[in-house]
Design a protein around this nucleic acid. Sequence first.
DNA 1: TCTTTATGACAAATATACTTTACATTTTTA
DNA 2: TAAAAATGTAAAGTATATTTGTCATAAAGA
Lengths: 67, 67
Amino acid sequence: MKNTLKIHRAIKNFTQEDLAKEIGVSRQTINSIEANRYVPSTVLALKLSKVFEVSVNQLFELELEDE
Amino acid sequence: MKNTLKIHRAIKNFTQEDLAKEIGVSRQTINSIEANRYVPSTVLALKLSKVFEVSVNQLFELELEDE
DNA sequence: TCTTTATGACAAATATACTTTACATTTTTA
DNA sequence: TAAAAATGTAAAGTATATTTGTCATAAAGA
């Protein structure tokens, strides 16, 4: 699964830490998601969707290897 | 977090087992998500979004207690 | 009504998300 | 160019998703 977190973070001019605080997770969690080290929970995805004002489907997209 | 899985499953006329096979998880996983016993991963949410042809945000919604 | 199919739920085991701590490297800014 | 801020990543620990197996009950069909 790929994501556009970094882009939306740039649009909002947020650091990883800003974002982490905003949604109540650690900075490393944000970093690890951006680096595709792990897949976030749907609650986390919805919170990101809310903060960035875009849909979850715009933030995250399945790749061939996911299916 | 609440979800509309049961409704979309009814629209497509899928049993929990049909759906489970469709997206490659166990029937209990579907059952547990519908019953709000746990929160699925974003990959799973995206797969459900694809099968039901609706956005993740239409399938799952944050509740007050999530924030 | 009897049988089959679908759902709800629990327990134990395993996989993986997420936290905290910590340190190195890169990027920004004074 | 030196200091500060931001990012990348790793390890160890905790929380929780997911599987497999199993059983009880509800719903649907013969």
